[in-house]
Nucleic acid binder design. Structure first.
Lengths: 113, 113
DNA sequence: TACATACTGAACCAGATGGTTCAGCATCAA
DNA sequence: TTGATGCTGAACCATCTGGTTCAGTATGTA
């Protein structure tokens, strides 16, 4: 069951693993923005911000369009559906395992069955 | 609004950004396992697997305990609650923005209001 | 005691990451 | 046409990552 092809989850989770990039997504949730606006907001060079936007765009979380000199960034097509469902599945497994553990502990403490 | 302190989300999302580590979590969801069992399952050296487990442990996703020579790995305290809620908030924002976009597009196509 | 097993730590490696500076190029405004 | 603005690409840098090998140490087992 080893996974050899890179999953799209790799890219999205990696994109989300950076506070600046999560901040950019939240910012874009409040409205579209140019590279320079984002760069100023996050106190970074244009080049640096462009790289972050590139990572987000690669992951499908941001879409950009250049008009004139200005490249406008907005939220992209990826809705994080697969990511959400992976995490939900994990949380269910976690609950099952820890419920089982709780039962074992309860048994150990009051084994009147 | 720039985030300077590293958020715990950084560590968990980074931990989830690797297919091997997601696989280890799924494996541990089916039952506890030693480092060597995991290493064999994912065709990797003990040292390599130990590093992955270290990353997961650091993120709170795995807990380990050494008894004798064997270090047993099990799911850790972190339930991915914050991660799930960050993603849910994002999905809601996304829906709002794209509903708004849809309305604009609908207006443009049939502006009879 | 002797040998195998299970892990551990240090060192190394290639490639990715998160930033920078610098030198362009295109576009808009005066 | 001149100058400011906005972005882009190349090059560089330090650090992190995902793996390895090799040389231990500790623990079981015969």
């Amino acid at each position: 069951m080893v996974q050899h092809q890179p999953s799209p989850l790799d890219g999205t989770f990696a994109a989300l693993a950076d506070a600046t990039r999560r901040g950019v997504l939240e910012q874009l949730g409040r409205g579209d923005a140019s590279i320079s606006v984002l760069a100023e907001r996050f106190q970074m060079t244009l080049t640096g911000m462009k790289k972050h936007v590139g990572v987000l765009e690669q992951a499908g979380l941001v879409r950009t369009e250049k008009v004139g000199r200005v490249r406008t960034c907005r939220l992209g097509p990826r809705r994080l559906a697969e990511e959400a469902s992976w995490i939900e599945r994990y949380r269910q497994t976690w609950d099952v395992r820890f419920d089982a553990l709780d039962q074992v502990l309860a048994q150990l403490q009051s084994p009147e069955s």
